[in-house]
Amino acid sequence: MQAIPITLAIDVLNLSKKYGDVVAVDNISFKVKQGSVFAFLGPNGAGKSTTIKMLTTLLVPTNGTVTLNGFDVAKKSNEVRKNFGIVFQDPSLDDDLTAYENMELHGVLYKVDNMKERIEQLLTFVELWDRKNSPVKTFSGGMKRRLEIARGLMHHPKILFLDEPTLGLDPQTRNHIWNYISKMNREDGTTIFFTTHYMEEAEKVADEIVIIDQGKIIAQGTSTELKAKTKTNSLEDAFIDLTGHDIRPEEAPKNARMRAWHGRR
């Protein structure tokens, strides 16, 4: 009998990024199966966002290869870009445009079919339809976040990258959004790759977890395996056991995240 080949959504091999002498990502390799929910965890400054930038064609790696749904990120960047959607950690909306215009711009860039219906559906889902004609600069942080998520989902990506997607959202909204993302994963087979500092989120939804610290992968497995390995009862305890208790230094402009991080501890 012939084995059915399992296509990988993401295949990362010996990936590194150096800035001068600083090694942001240090020779990491991992695989993400199609249709899985994959959590990429690590303390601040561990190299998560740098890795995501390399996976999503925004940054050229110093070393190593990345393959997304069979396409080499370095050689077939346009094919790769058709395959994924991303919700960035930092805002990436145009504040001068309205919510609707931001969605429309995305729809045109990605050639989304039935764009109007799709925009209405998603803006209704994130409860921004009645604010569709307001400029984004009048939105609160949480509203912007919801709009970014709606936009990232718009073109039915096969792989969805979510870099701290629920940061700054209340529990109701977080729950609402995770339900939708889980549904996409179940029904459309969308592969989910996400980072978060909410360990209970990762524990609840992730099939597979990778923990990165100081640019290196230090642990990998299911939530159950990581807890068993560290003899702890929750993923949060396992995470702290693996990465230590020290609070990580961070760049100045991102101090908002730093405060959020302190607040949770």
Partner: peptide
């Protein structure tokens, strides 16, 4: 600086 550039750079357009 305000992030919008990323949105256009990851889009599948030249």
């Amino acid at each position: 600086q305000f992030g919008f550039l990323k949105e256009t750079l990851v889009a599948p357009v030249s």
